[in-house]
Amino acid sequence: MNTPSDPGRLGAAAHPLADFQDRHLLVTGAASGIGAAVARQLIARGARVSAVDLDEAGLGRLHTHAAQDAPGHASRSARLWTAPLDVRDAGRVDQVIAQAEAAQGPLHGLASVAGVLEMGEVAELTDAQWQRCFDINATGVFHVCRAVARRLRERREGAIVTVSSNAATTPRAGMAAYAASKAAATQFSRCLGLELAPHGIRVNIVSPGSTDTAMQQAMWALGSSREAVIAGDPGRWRLGIPLAKIARPDEIAAAVLFLLSDQASHITLHDLRVDGGATLDR
């Protein structure tokens, strides 16, 4: 059974039509949460995956999980290549992507998932908190997408999905730095999509709501809770979740895989919210 602590185990069952056999895809933020779920589901669909993250221990766990998804099936883990990467370092981004292509072949697509959360009212927010959100959530997306776009443009094929947030379009008290950085990533991705469309390359966005990841759990540690998020908070002008549940990472990954797949071959510039109705699908 798929559980919140077991991302990506849906595998082929979640995507009976989305076949990634022998396609090479890069996944950032792949050590845990949504990124790990995306990487595992892609591997389960036959993809070659280059998984990058700052968390080297988490990348090691991803190798273990990839093998466990199909016990005795050595080719599963063989299709996974990992490397540590700080997306804030443009030079290192280019270097790692070149290494990934040398190891796994030409890239066919990107899932840009790496992101961080900084909480705080604007009046108390520090420069460092603001800068960290933008450095990773916006500039990091730019670095990785630029490097991948250059390669895909030459081949005139491929797809890019940026994992943003429903906070990019819906104001959240205490989340100004995060929301603003995700709004930047969303609009950047749309602009990139316009530029790449003439080359046959699609660029889309998946905007999750509250998802059972380490990031969400850190918010609960600051005084929120699963129940409070589901119920909403009128005092903070925040709606609850109509489906009355927190998303699992594999549910967000399913949306990412759809937009990367040929099943979404005529979809580009789209922002797909996966939030259980929390923003009334605005």
Results as ranks from 00 to 15, higher is better:
61 R>P: 00
135 D>P: 07
249 P>V: 08
89 D>M: 06
2 N>V: 13
121 E>K: 14
148 V>S: 03
157 E>T: 11
37 A>C: 07
161 V>G: 04
138 A>G: 06
108 H>L: 04
44 A>E: 09
93 V>L: 05
251 E>C: 12
174 G>F: 06
259 L>A: 09
29 G>K: 04
73 H>P: 00
130 W>R: 06
103 A>P: 00
63 H>M: 10
59 L>T: 10
139 T>D: 09
20 F>A: 08
269 L>N: 13
1 M>R: 13
11 G>H: 07
187 Q>D: 11
70 A>Y: 09
77 S>P: 00
155 R>M: 08
191 C>L: 09
166 N>E: 15
187 Q>F: 11
107 L>G: 02
217 Q>E: 11
75 S>A: 15
11 G>R: 12
259 L>T: 08
282 R>T: 15
14 A>E: 03
38 V>M: 03
273 R>V: 15
241 I>G: 11
182 K>I: 00
196 L>G: 03
172 R>M: 12
272 L>Q: 09
95 Q>W: 00
248 R>C: 08
66 A>G: 08
159 A>G: 07
169 T>W: 06
244 A>F: 06
151 R>N: 05
173 A>K: 10
118 E>S: 10
215 M>A: 14
194 L>H: 14
97 I>C: 06
62 L>H: 05
55 D>L: 10
141 V>Y: 04
45 R>G: 07
22 D>F: 02
192 L>K: 01
239 L>P: 05
80 L>P: 05
153 R>V: 04
58 G>P: 12
62 L>D: 05
64 T>L: 13
164 S>L: 01
105 G>Y: 07
244 A>S: 15
148 V>W: 02
67 A>Y: 07
216 Q>H: 12
136 I>N: 07
120 G>T: 05
146 R>Q: 13
80 L>S: 10
129 Q>G: 13
148 V>R: 02
84 P>A: 14
240 G>I: 03
276 G>I: 12
32 S>F: 06
275 D>M: 08
277 G>R: 10
268 T>I: 08
140 G>A: 03
176 A>L: 11
187 Q>L: 12
166 N>W: 04
155 R>T: 08
57 A>L: 14
159 A>R: 09
97 I>G: 02
169 T>L: 13
48 R>L: 10
215 M>R: 03
18 A>M: 11
212 D>Y: 12
16 P>H: 07
158 G>S: 04
183 A>C: 03
267 I>R: 10
179 A>F: 05
191 C>V: 12
265 S>E: 09
180 A>D: 08
26 L>Q: 06
45 R>Y: 02
56 E>I: 13
227 E>P: 00
191 C>P: 00
265 S>R: 15
14 A>L: 09
270 H>T: 14
6 D>S: 15
102 A>D: 11
190 R>M: 10
27 V>I: 02
145 C>K: 00
205 I>M: 00
84 P>L: 05
275 D>A: 13
175 M>Q: 12
142 F>P: 01
13 A>M: 04
195 E>V: 01
218 A>H: 08
226 R>A: 13
92 R>I: 03
212 D>M: 14
210 S>M: 14
56 E>W: 02
186 T>P: 03
41 Q>C: 09
